[in-house]
Amino acid sequence: MIAFRAIFVTSLRQLFTRKRIIGFGLITLLPAVLVALIPASSADSPEELFLGIAVETLLKLVVPIIAIVLASGVLGDERTDKTLSFLTLRPISRFTIAGAKITATAAAASSFAAFGAILLGITYAVRGGVGGPTVGLIVSGVLSATLYTSLVTPLGYLTRRATILALSYLILMENVIISAVPAMASSSPWRVGLAGGGALLPSNFRRSAVLDTIGTLELNLPGAVIQVVGTGAVLTIILGLLLSRRDNV
């Protein structure tokens, strides 16, 4: 447990560089700025406008980009900086290293997602919006961020092109192919997140057509949490095995 905590805390320090805090902080402002600037009359209802901006910017763009960048670097940078042997030449299980790294990255990406969701909720409230969508958005963002980081962290260990590969998946697979084939929605992390967090949205939001983007998924928080935690556990095991068997070159 001491080793897990040590890796977790050091990884957070590694992830939260000043540049990233400023850069990602500014990116997470974008959805709130759009909600503040776009006139309410440009959509059928304020809820429709708000949720549309939240999904199109925060969940489909900001959260995946931040999670992908952080996850591809959390072990990838250790390889590049030659510090990976500092972790692997220790009397600790490789699964401890994998679990601590994925958990720390998920926590870092989730904090940015939650920050963006809170800013959005505040802006909505300031503009006189009805109902409290913030909790639902935070949960959607955290679930999405966790799923992206679980998937991309092992990829970042395997290849230096993890960021490009993951962004290609986001753009081509999630936003083109899965949009056309709704039955594949469960392989889209942001849709899984929205399905989980959407269940917590007030009823005036749950009628929104924007929620149709989750395809064949249903608004179901426990189902989404099980998928996220299960995927995270499986990928932690895979990463632990990779750390055991692959050369630390």
Binding site: T10, Q14, T17, D81, K82, L89
Partner: peptide, 14 residues
Amino acid sequence: VAFVPEDDAVYPFL
């Protein structure tokens, strides 16, 4: 066992 690699395998932020 402990290993001291030739590379600058340190964390500059610590």
